[in-house]
Design a protein around this nucleic acid. Sequence first.
DNA 1: GGAAATTGTCAATTGAATTTACAAAATAAA
DNA 2: TTTATTTTGTAAATTCAATTGACAATTTCC
Lengths: 379, 379
Amino acid sequence: MGTVVRNAEYTKEYNRKLVLRLLRKNPVSRAEIARLTGLTRASVSLIAAELLEEEKIKELRPVGGQRGRMPTPLAICDDAGYALGIYLNRDGCTAGLVNMSDSILAQERVKLEEGSKEQKLEELRKTIEKLVQVSGVLKEKIWGIGVSAPGPLDGEKGEILNPPQFNLWHKTPIGAWLREKTGLPVFLENNATCLARYYYDSREAQDSENFLLLLVDSGIGSGIISKGKVLKGSGYFTSELGHISINYHGRPCPCGNVGCLEAYAAIPNLLRGTNFDSWRQLIDASKSDENAREIMRKEAEYLSAGVISLNHIVNIDTVILAGEVLYGAEQLIPLMEKQINSQALRRESQTVRVLPGKKIEGARILSASNIVFSRGLIV
Amino acid sequence: MGTVVRNAEYTKEYNRKLVLRLLRKNPVSRAEIARLTGLTRASVSLIAAELLEEEKIKELRPVGGQRGRMPTPLAICDDAGYALGIYLNRDGCTAGLVNMSDSILAQERVKLEEGSKEQKLEELRKTIEKLVQVSGVLKEKIWGIGVSAPGPLDGEKGEILNPPQFNLWHKTPIGAWLREKTGLPVFLENNATCLARYYYDSREAQDSENFLLLLVDSGIGSGIISKGKVLKGSGYFTSELGHISINYHGRPCPCGNVGCLEAYAAIPNLLRGTNFDSWRQLIDASKSDENAREIMRKEAEYLSAGVISLNHIVNIDTVILAGEVLYGAEQLIPLMEKQINSQALRRESQTVRVLPGKKIEGARILSASNIVFSRGLIV
DNA sequence: GGAAATTGTCAATTGAATTTACAAAATAAA
DNA sequence: TTTATTTTGTAAATTCAATTGACAATTTCC
């Protein structure tokens, strides 16, 4: 049973977070908040007064425009809260401390080249300590630690499972460990999901409410936002599009399955046995080399097959590409759009768009730390 | 924006529905409701008093057992509400009127063999009228109409899209139509999802909170319950497992995609070009015929491939089989369990179970009408 | 028979949003 | 320039639902 009743306490917390969530994006006046949320102006005034008192928000200079008294925009205080972001991938680890306005106050590249798992975890702890010290932020104001790591992982348990070529972190209960060492809440999600959420929260996703973020590098990652929420089954990993099978009699994958999308479409696997060493090289060659174009067409075919299958389980209207394949995406994207829209079950009036993900400065740390604020403001 | 504030009105409605939802399964005392929901005993008393006054619930004879004053079980009144259930599939249509305790008060087979779409819709309307008249139920007490139909369909818009071999109902806005003709709210979902929800609500799903209902007949249907909720992307159809591809270079499917699970594993497609006309015949033959066994093994392989891919997008712990394949399922199930658990990404400690769905008397009407109560009790 | 536990109710209280009214501030219109 | 209109934000009184804390009634355990 949900054991979730609704009472005055819940109501207040919910509405407070509703207001904070709204203000985190950009300044909004009391009256506008009332209109957007459905609360009365009086209620918003009360909530705002409390948040002002707590110095979580501040008033900006009133600005006019339309008739009537000038509205006073309310804005989140930069120091209303802080979050640590840790980004792990096969190349290494970056960590940073971020304020509520998405400014990175301090960041560090964590050296993890050698040593045991325990030593690496210890290295991580030291880095976090250093970040807090350097930035001078009060530990009480840090809402938590967001960890972005390759999947599969168990977000609820805070445990990295067994991502391919990531052996050292296999079966690492990084959530429990960090929580114990720092006393802070830890949120673990896979790289692609973090990025998807960040794109959504920053309204970079072209207003799509149902999109797939497809991260194509040395592996294939995916994150799904459906109706503004991260799609999550329960329990362990989810949305591992890289490990759905596009051929039940196909190539074996280290994950144990057969014909995984990743076994075909991850860049190293795509290029194995060809004359090309990198995606960039392939794209550059494709201007004059029919063989290169053929390989690129294959990539579009693989990725489209995965997207179509996904689309038949959870409808999406937009695919956002990220990772190495962004280079030369203006060639790849039309191929994918064409195949997806000709083969996917869909309403005639609705097509699936494929878009290149915008480059974002500091995306790794920001997308990792963003989980903390994003989840912290959900009741 | 959510435009969903929380206030006293919301709070009350939520808690009332919480109590009703609980009581719909079986009688529970006030004190027990308090423990299960987290409300105080006093609050539950107040809510119960109102529901008693409205004759939505009733008190049963107190029964003892443990120490202390005997608790008075509260039970839903059979006539607290009614729902119409309409079940559509390729063989025809059944409709029924059901009370809140899942008793079918009246039912009708709807003749739809001939005539235009308009004539069939009209036939449907007449049937509904008849059901209401025959049962003598007050129309004000009918909460709505639940329609269970083959997918793909758009539940939000209440529109059947283009299920294969179901041409007459293609692009039918059955929701809007029924709503207009009857004035009742209409809930449309696909057959497998309805059944999944019904299994879940009746606690037939072996207490699984994340399961896939896999309906294998002349088509392949699927419904996913995740954390007790129906998995829904937004917009149009969802969880059409029958149309995910298990082979990107495979058989073309009428849906437009290539290598769809349904193209391989729907019974008629599986048996095409073999000596067998029906699943039953195949199973009967398999006792002595190696060729029949081989075909069955293929079926297990196809279905498992689909389940594995699904599992990599939304984790499930249980698969419940339904449809024709239930015959002889004691042979099919171990094959599937073995393949799924050896190939799917999963935590070592967790295995996916495959179970035969229990036969339920009147399942078609009950699963269709159940949507009405189930959705009507969510805030 | 008395102690302990349990259920259900009651009256008073709390706490949140709402209602209603109004002052202040800006633009538009006369 | 003056007046009307619109809009914002606040304040006091009100409403409404759940909670608190006390208590009677009832049952089993010792």
